[in-house]
Each structure stands twice: as structure tokens, then as C-alpha cells.
Amino acid sequence: MRREDKKGEKIIGDFLQRHYYQGLINLENPQKPSYIKRIDRITDKKQQTNGIDVQIHLGYKSNPVLSKEVNIDEKTALYYPKGNMNKLSGINTFAFELKSEISYKGRGTDIGWLFSNNCTNYYLLNWVTIFIGKPNNMFNKRHLNWWNNNSIENGKIKIQEIESYLISKKKLISFITKIMNSNPKTARLYSKPKELNDFMKKNHKNNYNDFVYSINEETRLMLNNNLPEKPVNIIINKSQLGQLAVLKTISTIDSLTPRRIY
């Protein structure tokens, strides 16, 4: 994670802690054999680096002695919020990192966070809607660092709601593997970051400073040359991600329980 993003992720995490996780128990199916015993937000940096932002502890009605921990990694489209300005239209996609030039503990060289060998069980994908109290030229940008100028603290910007999809990492990887293998040119490149990077440089269409390659009509690869990690991401439509999600919700500022969406 880039240093300037850490504050934004902290703000998102605080909102979710109050307006998502606290009410998650209210959405549980009483017919399920398991139930939520406790939800912990992880502050240990080593665990965070290992793909754990939140840990949900499950109990089992049939056997109180049994327990299970579910590790959640929160991912947010920070730079693309919806908002009360024309420029802030949000996005209907999400980017998953396949290759990065910055190595992290637990990853092989150049492997992006999606295929890293960490402890993540589920991803919580988040799209944010914000309200800007006094819009000015400072906010008239497509890529808005809305969290980085003390506007949250002084009330100029407020998070109105967060739309969240909870998706199994295993299921997501299986889906992406199938998509990339369906195109002979991208088959198996998800596990070969160096070859993937070379492929993007040779087979792309320029989009400003980014290299883009379409796998199919709904999925594309993008090499971002503007960021220090120069990531190659796979971009997937929200509609496709919705079919993978085990839970889709909207958490609003005026409620402590998220609303399930279908």
C-alpha cells in the first residue's frame, strides 16, 4: 500500500467498523450452523501485511467448543468515489493486482497481492460515496485524494455510504484463472509476473500513460506506469463480481446495520 493511501484505508476501516461490522450479526441466517462470536480489527502490522485487516471468530451451535477464524482483507476503490460533483461519478469495476515491482514479505518477486501466499480468506471490496460540503477547484479532479487534506476531520467531506462485496479469495482466483486461460494469449500469465509485464508492453493500446489489453468484452489488463510499483492489474466489472459475492451490502452513515442488496 502506498503511504498516502494508509490514511484513507484507516478512515474507511473506521467507518466499516461502526456501520458494517457492528451490525453484521443482524444479517446472519438463524438456520446456519455457525454464528459470529467476535469481530476483531487487526492493528498488528505483520498480520496486516499478511492479508488480515479484520478477523471474524465463528462458533458452532452444535458444538460450543469448536471455533473458526475467518480472515478478511479490505480493498477499497479510494481514488474513484461517487459524490455530489459531476467529476465524482465513481466506477463500476475493481482492479486486482497481478504484478508489482515492489516486493513484500510473503510474496515472491513481482507477485501482486491477489496471488500472494498470505492468510486472506475473503476480500471485502468497497466502493465509497462521499459528500463535499463546500466544493471548490481543489475537488474538481477525477483522481481525488479526498482523505488526505484534513477535510474529513474538519467536516468538509463526509462518507455517506459504502457499497461492499464479500468474496472468497479462493473463488475469485478460480474465476480470474478461468478468464485468463480462456484467451490463448493470456493463459497462465497470472502466475508469471515477468512474462505478464513483457506481454503488456508488446500487446497493448495506450490509455494516457497506461497500457491496456482487453481479454474479453468485460475484462481487461492494465499496466500502470504512473505508480512506483508499476502494477499490472486485471479490471473486472462489478456485475461479474456481484455473482461471486457471498454478501452484498450498503452501509450508510445513519445506520449501524448494513443493508443487504441483491
Rank of each mutant, 00 (worst) to 15 (best):
G90K: 02
T129K: 15
K99D: 02
L124H: 12
W113G: 01
S116T: 02
M85L: 15
T120P: 02
N117G: 00
L88R: 03
K134V: 07
N86Q: 14
P135Y: 11
K87C: 06
G133Y: 11
R142E: 12
F94C: 00
L125H: 04
S116V: 00
F96R: 03
I130S: 08
D110K: 12
G112I: 07
L125N: 06
L124S: 13
N117S: 03
F139E: 12
D110V: 01
S103K: 15
L114E: 00
G133V: 03
K134C: 03
N86Y: 11
F139M: 11
N140L: 12
L98F: 10
F115T: 04
N140Q: 14
K134F: 06
F96I: 04
F96Y: 10
W127P: 01
L98R: 02
K134Y: 04
F115L: 09
Y104M: 08
N137C: 12
N117V: 00
N140E: 15
G133L: 13
D110G: 01
Y122G: 01
Y123I: 02
M138H: 10
R107G: 14
F139V: 07
T109I: 15
R107S: 15
F115H: 08
S100T: 12
R107Q: 15
G90F: 01
P135H: 07
S100D: 09
N92P: 03
D110C: 05
A95T: 06
I102P: 04
T120M: 04
G83P: 02
W113M: 01
R142S: 10
I130R: 09
N118C: 02
G83I: 06
F94W: 02
N86S: 14
L88N: 06
